[in-house]
Design a protein around this nucleic acid. Sequence first.
DNA 1: CATACATTTCGACAATACTCGAACTATGGA
DNA 2: TCCATAGTTCGAGTATTGTCGAAATGTATG
Lengths: 118, 118
Amino acid sequence: METLNAAELLAALGHESRLAIFRLLVEAGPDGINASAIGEQLGMAPATLSFHLAHLSRVGLISGERESRFIHYSANYGTMDELIAFLTRNCCQGHACLPKTAGCASTEQRRAKTGKPS
Amino acid sequence: METLNAAELLAALGHESRLAIFRLLVEAGPDGINASAIGEQLGMAPATLSFHLAHLSRVGLISGERESRFIHYSANYGTMDELIAFLTRNCCQGHACLPKTAGCASTEQRRAKTGKPS
DNA sequence: CATACATTTCGACAATACTCGAACTATGGA
DNA sequence: TCCATAGTTCGAGTATTGTCGAAATGTATG
């Protein structure tokens, strides 16, 4: 990932409403949820919501799939992964710089195996 | 970390120039580098650079320390860590969602211990 | 103190982004 | 076909952000 592309992703997440949408989808899991459910939970006007969903889609952080009258949106975990990989590349000069990054199950499983507490 | 605060950090990084500055400082390590060196490497006007450095400082992603006539800026790894922890919280519903996040030595050390390939 | 250099602050302009009502498109059901 | 619901697009107004020259501040040195 290049700086320009990463900056686009970060800018997309750098807005309270869009970040809230993205986090909602991240926690919703791979099945995702439909647009109006997002709008209800976050109290956003349909047009505003659509604007932000389009933005997040355009940069590749989420995808929408039509399911009859609804459109199910879901987070693209791979894109987030690449973004985090970009941010942490050559990040710590040999030191452990990310002790708190424990939200991911794979990380927690790794910690459990090594017997390291979080 | 709350959504509002995280959005501020992401917005700060969501600009090509600021992201380039931050990545430069992340790779420079804890000693950091001074403002004019950053400006030289990125070809930025002093006023513009100062504006972006102030922004990154305000949100806590970098810190500057005066050293005679120069000001050494360095990345605040802890803030980045918290940000990534926020982004990945409850992120993968039990699946391994971040296979590529291998830039951090602590992660790599953990992987080495468990014998897991990246 | 005068000068040079590093960096920030100020001010103004240009560009971009956000919001949301109204109109539009798509889908399913009566 | 007619209607209701889900969601998007359009358009206009407002607000925010980015850029950078010029002036100011802080620091060392002759």
